[in-house]
């Protein structure tokens, strides 16, 4: 039996894994869309309409519109982290990962498929929230293309982080720990509901240690043309996070850590 040489990149394998993940998301579409959309609506009702009307403008932007980028990212952060983490943790937990590990799929392809799928879902959710927000606040997007690219980049960075968590995690609690106990608080304190310039010292200075501040700021810049820090610092932070994750992923690839004995 003679076989043609196997292609250098298993496109079909990557697509199959990606598709599998997207189908898994589709099965849980309602709960994954309804919860973030509902929460966002509540934020708008409480902060945008009830409180926001007392606050007025921040940096020349109506308060309702001001909180939109941060609220989108709040969902994108947590969803990227937990979806990517669960995506790889579940087959590890159930044992079905044996099939992927025995397939002619490289670790790089594996990461691409899982992270790509989780990031896709987050971008879709982010856009749904954006469209939902338009019912509550007038939204002008200063740089739509930048906004979209930035959204994709954030989704990718946090999905990659989630993937690594899913590889390292030894139990379900660990999967929830980072999104719930680390990223959510950091996001709330990271300038979603306010510009950090509104904070008194030393809180303003302390906030500058929170990387989420920089990431949210860049996204807000794409909407409003201004942020807490310069766009380049934001992009640098994001790329730094991605580089760090890629280095860890490369380490996992090299050693087969937690995937192979």
């Amino acid at each position: 039996m003679s076989r043609p040489a196997f292609p250098r990149f298993n496109t079909r394998g990557v697509w199959t894994l990606y598709h599998f993940e997207m189908m898994r998301f589709r099965r849980t579409l309602w709960q994954s869309v309804v919860a973030p959309v509902l929460t966002t609506i509540l934020y708008f009702v409480v902060f945008g309409a009830a409180i926001g009307s007392r606050i007025g403008e921040i940096d020349g932007v109506a308060y309702g519109a001001f909180i939109v980028p941060g609220l989108i990212l709040l969902t994108v952060f947590t969803q990227s982290l937990s979806n990517a983490a669960f995506g790889i943790y579940m087959p590890r937990f159930s044992g079905t990962i044996y099939e992927t590990l025995s397939a002619p799929v490289s670790f790089f392809e594996l990461i691409l498929a899982y992270v790509g799928a989780a990031a896709t879902k987050s971008v879709i959710l982010g856009l749904i929230i954006l469209f939902t927000a338009r019912w509550f606040a007038p939204i002008d997007i200063a740089y739509p293309l930048l906004m979209l690219s930035y959204l994709v980049l954030v989704a990718f960075a946090f999905s990659l982080t989630g993937f690594i968590i899913g590889i390292i995690a030894e139990g379900f609690e660990a999967l929830q720990f980072v999104p719930m106990l680390l990223v959510t608080p950091l996001t709330f304190l990271g300038g979603v509901f306010y510009s950090i310039d509104m904070l008194p010292e030393p809180w303003r200075a302390i906030s500058l240690f929170n990387p989420i501040v920089y990431i949210v700021s860049g996204f807000r810049y794409s909407f409003h043309g201004s942020g807490d820090v310069s766009l380049w610092i934001s992009l640098g932070t994001l790329l730094g996070l991605i580089t760090l994750c890629l280095a860890i992923a490369a380490r996992i690839i090299h050693t087969g850590y937690r995937l192979k004995q």
Partner: peptide
């Protein structure tokens, strides 16, 4: 080791695709 929610045909299709 099997998935739960997939159908039989989908899961064998998946296996074939995974192997390129």
């Amino acid at each position: 080791h099997t998935d739960m929610f997939e159908t039989v045909l989908d899961t064998v299709r998946f296996s074939r695709g995974l192997f390129g």
